[in-house]
């Protein structure tokens, strides 16, 4: 964990209510896809946890949905503004278990961590399929970015306005070696029920600290209590108790 001041390089809307923020700063503590950062915002007491979408060349990319006052404030920040960010939080995905044809499944605000995972897996020579689930066409983002790095992209929308009509589970291929997923809990549960291989799930919880000190985010697993912020946010399929 590191507390670093990051400078905003860009902060722009990329889909309905969805923003991409690129920051410059020390990213040395970010060691795995699926980790998150915790951002201090002026006027808000608690930090806001946001997944790492990408971290390379001294740049940190975050994608966030405006859902409340804190993310609304984030969206108002201009280029050049500085933010105190705790980096290197959470365990992240273990990409070594992927096999040759990993499946990545992201729902809405759960899509961002899939980008860094896809990039690393493709760099390691894996054949990556990404399923991205959204409500409607206006919410879709990063399709081209995923394609550009060489992932096969499947989009689902609940209203059918883009890609397959329905949920991410309606677009799951027959043939994959392992999966990584992040999204709202009902989606994670549906993936859990439908998946036929092992895989890893990234969970969300309201956090006090984000680094393991307050026990604000604990869940039960087959191997005892785990803190989503520190022992997670990624849990393996096998250890989850629904």
């Amino acid at each position: 964990m590191k507390d670093t001041v990051f400078k905003i390089l860009s902060n722009k809307s990329i889909a309905a209510n969805t923003y991409e923020m690129v920051l410059a700063g020390d990213i040395s503590d970010i060691t795995a896809a699926g980790q998150f950062v915790n951002i201090m915002l002026d006027g808000f007491y608690l930090r806001r946890p946001i997944s790492v979408c990408n971290a390379e060349d001294g740049k940190l990319t975050l994608i966030y949905k405006v859902v409340g006052k804190g993310t609304e404030y984030m969206a108002s920040l201009a280029e050049g503004a500085e933010l105190s960010v705790l980096t290197g939080l959470g365990n992240g995905y273990d990409l070594s278990l992927s096999g040759d044809k990993p499946l990545l499944i992201g729902g809405g605000a759960g899509v961002p961590p899939m980008f860094m995972a896809a990039k690393k897996l493709i760099e390691a020579g894996k054949s990556v399929t990404v399923i991205m689930g959204f409500g409607r066409a206006e919410e879709v983002f990063y399709k081209e970015e995923f394609e550009k790095i060489g992932a096969e992209v499947r989009i689902t929308t609940v209203d059918g306005s883009c890609g397959v009509r329905g949920f991410v589970t309606d677009a799951m291929p027959e043939d994959y070696t392992y999966f990584y997923t992040c999204g709202p809990e009902p989606m994670l549960k549906a993936v859990y029920d439908k998946s036929e291989t092992d895989g890893q799930f990234s969970f969300e919880e309201r956090m006090g600290c984000g680094f393991g000190a307050c026990m604000g985010c604990t869940c039960k697993t087959k191997y005892g209590n785990k803190r989503i912020c520190r022992d997670g946010p990624v849990l393996t399929k096998e250890e989850i108790v629904w």
Partner: peptide
Amino acid sequence: RFGNPTPRIAETPSGMLNAVGLQ
């Protein structure tokens, strides 16, 4: 003790609520 179910944390103006429940 496991403590309380989550959510255990809520933000407030200049502070926070916790209901960790002595985990």
